[in-house]
Design a protein around this nucleic acid. Sequence first.
DNA 1: ACGGACTTGACAACCGATTGCCATTATCTG
DNA 2: CAGATAATGGCAATCGGTTGTCAAGTCCGT
Lengths: 348, 348
Amino acid sequence: MSAVQRGTPMATQPMATGRPATIHDIAALCGVAASTVSRALANPERVNIRTRERIQAAAVELNYTPNSQAKALSSGKTGAVGVLVPDITNPFYFDLIRGTQLQLKAAGYTQLLVDTEESDEVEASTLEQLRKSADGVVVAASRLNDEALAAAAARMPMVTVNRDVDGVPAVLIDTPSAMPQALDHLISLGHTSVAYVSGPAVSQSSARRWIALSEAAEERGVDVRRIGPFAPKTQSGAAAADAAVHSGVTACIVFNDLIAIGMLQRLRERGLRVPEDMSIVGCDDIFGADFCNPPLTTMSSPIEQAGRVAVSMLLAQLNPLAGGGNRSRSVMPTHLTVRGSTGSAPSN
Amino acid sequence: MSAVQRGTPMATQPMATGRPATIHDIAALCGVAASTVSRALANPERVNIRTRERIQAAAVELNYTPNSQAKALSSGKTGAVGVLVPDITNPFYFDLIRGTQLQLKAAGYTQLLVDTEESDEVEASTLEQLRKSADGVVVAASRLNDEALAAAAARMPMVTVNRDVDGVPAVLIDTPSAMPQALDHLISLGHTSVAYVSGPAVSQSSARRWIALSEAAEERGVDVRRIGPFAPKTQSGAAAADAAVHSGVTACIVFNDLIAIGMLQRLRERGLRVPEDMSIVGCDDIFGADFCNPPLTTMSSPIEQAGRVAVSMLLAQLNPLAGGGNRSRSVMPTHLTVRGSTGSAPSN
DNA sequence: ACGGACTTGACAACCGATTGCCATTATCTG
DNA sequence: CAGATAATGGCAATCGGTTGTCAAGTCCGT
């Protein structure tokens, strides 16, 4: 990161003209028609190289930047992409957002980030509004039902993250595949009675994780019960911890790290030790999972990459010209990261 | 491309037609001119009540929503506000972002969130671009120098957060005022030699905190030295911890919680106990400060409220009509939250 | 040198909404 | 009842680009 030093900005600061330059200013300066300027900038090969260069030079000189509103109006393309997340304060989405932002910026798009507040209504109305102000959307962990989501996807280009609906391209974070790993990890530590602490009832992620886990449990002949649902917030961890203790299990696999971290706090309050009395496995490996107490065993994925991939898929949909076949589904690998919150089952 | 089919008079389906309705559709349906529709919707009192109601009914029936691009183009107002943060993955900004988003949505504005990647160049170019695509900006923890920031503020409505520049309205999180509290807290625990672990060299916040701390230290006759600068990331904590240990102090007041948490980890690695061997005071009370190990003593502020206030100030600037006098400066209170990372000074 | 093929640049019609200006009509006043 | 005044609705220009159309200009081969 030593590149920080470079470029002390004595940068060529464009002087503050009263109003940003337009193609008409350029046209006037070059003595050509505005349309010629437009072409010179958009379809350079359609314009004489000398004129073109004169125009390009003038554009630089006037510090011209196209007016995105006007461009959107006449071309129908806004150059913006909406990114919908259910809760912007959930650390899981930080890296996702950063991934989408990076990839969008690289492609010259603007990111419209919206927090849908875990509400299907906010999500639906946002999608409707975005239909006119964005070229496409990335929808993370949608709270909409399948029909509504499919309908929205039919109206505008969309890529979902962690949500699988027929006909809608998706990036899936393959947490379910790590469930057997997590279970084997617990079994190897002597646990035979495990609880799955589930997330929101409308979360497809939670459902998929539970299915994967219960299948793996059946194969291995282990008792796994399900408790919940719980909201994906640390505050929910207290109730989840109490429910887990009451159920008598010695280990929990938890919908996500927020709840898991909340459980750690609650268990400590109740005088129970982790992992001596109870093992906890989280999910997502969010910011904080490595420095909570004890550090959380959890399932990790390349989240930022997921954001980048989602945007790539969306852009491929928007610009079908570019080579790469349009994948309609991309799966991000997941693995178990073992830390301090899991240990041998109580020996009693 | 063939001639666009838009003239079809009976194509006015209330259902989800391929294309959203425009004022022209409404005008056709009501048998009036488009401009009348525009007025009926914007200046209702300028249009006969019967016509107006007919138009409003048609608008509802056609599920009309104004095209924000077109509106922006002709009115010059975009209905969007840019929010610039240096690092979107820094939890400090989560609550700020949520605050701005809530307040903006309530006022019918769209939030354009941009991560400037701690770079003054990215920040400058973003501001320049936003000048045409947003009505105003909220700039958090700007990395620009005073002149550049003042110049940008002269070109478009702006409110800064944690940055004080002449003539630019600002929301200041008054962390400096908590510095004496923090120092007194440490002194009462027997510490006499304290280090300030500073943040980025260009961060005004860091500079202000240092000034407040060193003044308080002088008044109290305590030795406070400054180490750093360090980047505001947990990874920087390792170097910061080593520097602190080397300097021989028994307590650190740290620029922010990210660095502080990184220090906790590093100190543990080196076999040093917190707070027995070293006390740590963080700043910001970010997500994670309450559940790290040990829980972090830190300085807390109403960050989400800061975001809301920043937006309110900006909107007041945009719509001078509304009553409330335009405050140009708003200070958010800060207090010390004592947790487990501070304790009695080593007795040796 | 001439005609055709190909380039290049200008014009103008949009995109969807706002707004100044004017014509029409309704209402009111004396 | 005529004339004044206000209320109302429509036309058309405008915002900044994009793009289809066409005329003028260039270059070529024969």
